[in-house]
């Protein structure tokens, strides 16, 4: 809340946002959102946001704290269902299927749209159990050998296998912060999702661990569609192909990352990326 007030106090409130500028839509969309409003009780957190997540691309969501980017991200796999007072309106589609539609089972949706959280949150179980849990509950492996293989490939993809291959039975909570976060990524990709949502995945990590995660994101986009919320503009510039700038619950501008960071069209975007506030 404090950040919203400070953003307002910097005079940004006087600048009008009249629909998003830039190129929020694309032809090859994995997920498309149209006119999305999100309410917490009577409080509107997201105002009429429309854009697409392009297939096999990394889309960065940036903006000052409290601008609704995490809230929006959590709508994409219905994590907001856990908050009873949260209410989502508008159309959100995954491959043309309505996410909040009656036919969509949230359990299946979350298997298809995985999520990595801000703070590494491995289960207090062994490293193996952490990665194997998702495939187990969804019945992805028919026997132990198959499960072993899923765990191994997921850890390899997450770039963690070499570090932990000798201690798969030791607790996941005993790893370092960066390793824990990669374990969480391995856990997410073990379910073979189509989209991975990342909510500030590197904010609790040191620069070295962050570099490893960013490298990982680069490799993952070959197979997955990725949306990443980040506070670091350098990180957004490094890992993403598309960038969306959020401000006070509205989408201000969206377009190619290069273009947003070199030649933003909107005054608010320019203020933000040039470090005048946020």
């Amino acid at each position: 809340m404090v950040d919203i007030i400070s953003a307002k106090s910097l005079g940004s409130n006087d600048i009008k946002i009249e629909g998003a500028v830039g190129e929020p839509f694309c032809d090859d969309a994995k997920m498309s959102m149209r006119n999305v409003d999100v309410f917490y009780g009577d409080n509107q957190a997201i105002h009429d946001i429309s854009f697409d997540l392009e297939k096999n691309q990394v889309t960065a969501l940036i903006g000052p704290s409290g601008c609704g980017k995490s809230t929006f991200l959590r709508c994409l796999n219905r994590m907001n269902d856990l908050i009873p007072i949260c209410n989502v309106k508008g159309s959100l589609q995954l491959d043309g299927e309505e996410i909040y539609g009656k036919q969509m089972d949230p359990v299946l949706l979350r298997a298809r749209v995985g999520m990595v959280f801000q703070k590494p949150n491995p289960f207090p179980k062994s490293i193996y159990e952490n990665v194997a849990y998702g495939p187990k509950i969804h019945g992805l492996a028919t026997d132990k050998a198959e499960l072993d293989e899923i765990v191994e490939t997921s850890l390899i993809k997450a770039g963690l296998f070499n570090e932990v291959k000798d201690r798969l039975d030791s607790p996941g909570t005993g790893l370092s912060g960066g390793q824990q976060q990669r374990l969480c990524i391995a856990r997410t990709i073990a379910v073979s999702p189509e989209v991975i949502l990342m909510d500030e995945p590197a904010s609790a990590l040191d620069p070295i661990a962050t570099a490893v995660i960013e490298e990982l994101i680069h490799e993952l986009k070959e197979k997955y569609t990725i949306a990443i919320v980040t506070h670091s503009m350098q990180q957004a510039a490094r890992v993403s192909q598309k960038t969306a700038y959020f401000h006070l619950g509205q989408l201000v501008e969206m377009g190619d990352t290069k273009q947003i960071f070199t030649n933003p069209s909107h005054e608010l975007t320019e203020n933000y990326i040039s470090g005048r506030f946020g």
Binding site: M79, V107, R110, A111, K119, N121, F123, G134, H138
Partner: peptide
């Protein structure tokens, strides 16, 4: 911690699975 519930839910565990296995 709610993060454990989120982690399990985010993987597609149903309410009952989250509750009983974590």
């Amino acid at each position: 911690p709610p993060s454990i519930r989120e982690a399990a839910t985010g993987l597609g565990a149903s309410k009952i699975q989250t509750t009983f296995s974590h």
